[in-house]
Design a protein around this nucleic acid. Structure first.
Length: 574
DNA sequence: GCCGTTTTCGGCCCGACTGTTTTCAGTCG
C-alpha cells in the first residue's frame, strides 16, 4: 500500500513527541509538528508529489531537511531518525502523550524514576500508588492518571461528528443562555468553523461581573466530570465523553476572544505573527499597541488592525485565506440560499421511506426548482435496486407526475452502481431516457488503488455517466475511503465533463473539504446532493453547503446553484 | 528545523488553570 499523507504526519508526530521527551529544542519540535500538520492537511497525495519530483520545500514549514525526510518515508515507508530515537527511548512512550495531564516532562520523569514505558506500566504504577512518590506528582495526579487510562481503554473515537455535537450542544446552550447577566454567548472552535468532526466544544460568553454562568456550567445535569473550574475558564466532560470549555470575557473583548477561540490554531498564529510585525500584541482580550487596547469588540476590528478583510470562520485553517484576505481575493462562498435543487434522492421504490409525491412536496417546501429521484439500480440488492423494467415504469410515472403538476420539476434519475469491471449496472438504452445519472461504487471496495481508479475511469467513458456519487466511500469518523487516485479521477472528470458529488449526508460528507478545494482548483464542477432517503433528510443540504464553504466553493463551482435549463446544458445529455 | 519589508543568524504566539509548590513548572488550548 502506498504511503499516505497521514502516515508521514504520524511519523513526524512521533518524532516530535520523542524529541520533546528528550527535552530537545522546543522550536525544533514545533517544526516537526508544523510539518505533520502541513502534510496531513494537504489535498494531494504527498507520495504522488515525490514521484513527480516536485519541490516539497515549497510547502509551508517544510525546508530542505524535512523535504528529504518526506522523500525517505515515501520511498522506504520508514524514517531512520525515528528508529534511532526509538533505540534511545521506548517507542510506546509515544502512546502516553494521549493521557492528558501527562506531557513530555512528566513522561520523562515517570520513565527515568519508575521505568514506565507504556500504558500498562502506567496503569499498574498508578494502581500501586507509586506515582505519587515521584517528585512533581501527587495524589491528585495519580488519581487523574487512573481515570484517564480507564477512559482511554473504552474510548473508540476521539472526535465527535459535527451533527452529533450540534445535538449535544443545543440543550447546554439553551441552559447557559438562562444564566444571569449574559450579554453574548457563542459556540466557537471547530464547531464554528463547521469542521466535519469536533474534538471538543468551545463556548464563549460575555457577561456581567456577577454572572452565575460559571457555577451553572459546572452544575449542568449532563456534566460527568469537572476538569477545571476557574473564574474565567472551566472545562467539563459531558456524558458521552464530549469535553466542553467555557470562557468568560469582558464585552469589549468579545470579538477578539471569538476570533481567538474560533481558531484554527494555525490561523491564529498566522494572524498574530502579522500583528507582531506591526508592533501589535493580539490575544483573547484584544489588539494592543503599547499596552493600550485599540480593538477587540468585534472580529471585524481585529482583522482590520492587521490589514485583512473579514475571513469567514469556515476558511480559517491557514490554507491560504490570510494571503487571499490581504489581496482582496477571498472567495464569495456559497450559501444555502444559492441552492436551487437536489440531485440525489431516493423513494420507497427502492430503499427510501417516502413516496415520490411526498419527496416532491418536501423539496417544493424548501423552495427548490427541481428534485432528482435517483433510486438504486439492480445490483444493489439490499436496497431493492431496480432493473431496466422497473426503472422504465418509474420514468413513466415521473413524466405523468410532472405533466399533472406545476411548480417543482422531478428529474428522472438513477443511482447506477459501478460494477467491478467499470461497466454500469443498467443498459445504455434505458439510461439514455433519464435526465441524469449518479454513478456510485457500493461493492468491491477492496480493490487495489490501480484497479479501483481504472474501474471508475472506465465507467466515466460511458457518455451516460454524469455525476460520480460519494466519490471516496468514506464515512465521517467511521469507515475510511477506498483506495483511489482522486487526482486522476478529477482530471478525467474535467476532460469528460463529469461532475463530482459532494454528498451532504452528515455521516458521509464525501468529498472532504480539501478534496472539494482541489476539485475546484482543477476546474471540475461539483454538485451538493443530500442522498435523502426521506423528506426530512433533504435538510442535510445545509451540512453539504457548510462543507463546500470549507472547500472554498463559490456558487459558480456548484452545479445545483443553476436552473434546470443550465444544468441540462452542462450535463450534455441532449 | 524553519525562515526573512528589521534578519542567512537569531528569532520563533499567548494566556489560564492545576497541582505541587511556597513562587512556579507543566500542561493545555
Amino acid at each position: 500500500m502506498p504511503v499516505q499523507n497521514a502516515d508521514v504526519a504520524d511519523i513526524f508526530e512521533r518524532v516530535a513527541n520523542l524529541l520533546e521527551i528528550q527535552d530537545a529544542n522546543e522550536f525544533r519540535v514545533r517544526a516537526y509538528r508544523n510539518a505533520a500538520r502541513t502534510v496531513s492537511s494537504l489535498a494531494r497525495d504527498i507520495a504522488d508529489m515525490v514521484e513527480n519530483d516536485e519541490d516539497l520545500s515549497e510547502l509551508s514549514g517544510i525546508g530542505e531537511d524535512l523535504a528529504g525526510k518526506i522523500e525517505e518515508i515515501v520511498e522506504t515507508g520508514i524514517l531512520e531518525q525515528l528508529l534511532e530515537l526509538e533505540k534511545e527511548l521506548p517507542r510506546e512512550l509515544n502512546d502516553l502523550m494521549r493521557v492528558d495531564t501527562l506531557g513530555p516532562k512528566k513522561i520523562h520523569a515517570l520513565y527515568t524514576e519508575l521505568g514506565i514505558e507504556n500504558m500498562a506500566d502506567l496503569k499498574a504504577a498508578a494502581e500501586e500508588g507509586k506515582i505519587r512518590e515521584v517528585k512533581g506528582f501527587g495524589e491528585k495526579t495519580e488519581q487523574k492518571i487512573l481515570d484517564r487510562t480507564a477512559r482511554l481503554e473504552d474510548a473508540e473515537d476521539q472526535r465527535t461528528p459535527l451533527i452529533e455535537a450540534e445535538q449535544r450542544a443545543a440543550p447546554l446552550m439553551e441552559y447557559l443562555a438562562q444564566s444571569s447577566g449574559v450579554k453574548q454567548l457563542e459556540l466557537a472552535g471547530s464547531y464554528r468553523r463547521r469542521k466535519e468532526t469536533v474534538g471538543d466544544l468551545d463556548i464563549l460568553a460575555a457577561c456581567k461581573q456577577d454572572s452565575d454562568i460559571m457555577e451553572r456550567f459546572v452544575d449542568f445535569e449532563d456534566v460527568e466530570e469537572v476538569i477545571s473550574h476557574g473564574k474565567t475558564k472551566s472545562s467539563v466532560v459531558l456524558r458521552g465523553d464530549l469535553q466542553v470549555d467555557l470562557r468568560v470575557v469582558p464585552r469589549v473583548a468579545f470579538g477578539a476572544a471569538l476570533h481567538y477561540f474560533t481558531g484554527s490554531k494555525a490561523h491564529n498564529i498566522a494572524v498574530r505573527k502579522i500583528g507582531v510585525q506591526k508592533g501589535l500584541k493580539i490575544n483573547e482580550y484584544g489588539v494592543f499597541k503599547d499596552e493600550e487596547r485599540i480593538a477587540g469588540e468585534t472580529e471585524e476590528e481585529v482583522f482590520e488592525q492587521v490589514d485583512l478583510l473579514y475571513i469567514e470562520p469556515e476558511l480559517r485553517e491557514d490554507r491560504g485565506e490570510i494571503e487571499a484576505a490581504r489581496e482582496d481575493r477571498l472567495p464569495k462562498l456559497i450559501t444555502l440560499d444559492d441552492i436551487r435543487g437536489d440531485l440525489q434522492s431516493h423513494t420507497d421504490e427502492t430503499d427510501g421511506r417516502a413516496a415520490l409525491e411526498e419527496m416532491a412536496d418536501a423539496a417544493e417546501a424548501l423552495g427548490y426548482d427541481y428534485l432528482a429521484v435517483t433510486d438504486h439500480s439492480k445490483n444493489v440488492t439490499m436496497a431493492k435496486g431496480m432493473d431496466a423494467g422497473r426503472l422504465g415504469k418509474q420514468i413513466d410515472a415521473i413524466d405523468r407526475f410532472n405533466d399533472g403538476r406545476d411548480g417543482i420539476r422531478i428529474l428522472k434519475g438513477c443511482e447506477v452502481d459501478i460494477l467491478e469491471d467499470g461497466s454500469l449496472d443498467l443498459p445504455d438504452d434505458i439510461l439514455k431516457r433519464l435526465d441524469l445519472t449518479v454513478c456510485s461504487i457500493h461493492y468491491n471496495r477492496n480493490l487495489s488503488r490501480k484497479k479501483q481508479t481504472e474501474r471508475v475511469l472506465r465507467a466515466m467513458d460511458n457518455p451516460n455517466f454524469n455525476i460520480f456519487g460519494h466519490p471516496t466511500g468514506r464515512l465521517v469518523a467511521g469507515r475510511p475511503p477506498y483506495e483511489i487516485d482522486l487526482e486522476r479521477i478529477l482530471e478525467a472528470a474535467k476532460e469528460r465533463g463529469c461532475v463530482m458529488e459532494l454528498n451532504a449526508h452528515p455521516k458521509r460528507l464525501d468529498l472532504s473539504d480539501l478534496q472539494c478545494k482541489m476539485a475546484m482548483e482543477m476546474g471540475v464542477m461539483l454538485v451538493i446532493s443530500t442522498d435523502a432517503h426521506q423528506p426530512d433528510e433533504l435538510n442535510f443540504m445545509r451540512c453539504g453547503v457548510e462543507q463546500a464553504r470549507r472547500g472554498w466553493l463559490e456558487p459558480e463551482n456548484v452545479l445545483n446553484t443553476r436552473s434546470w435549463d443550465e444544468v441540462r446544458k452542462l450535463l450534455k445529455r441532449d
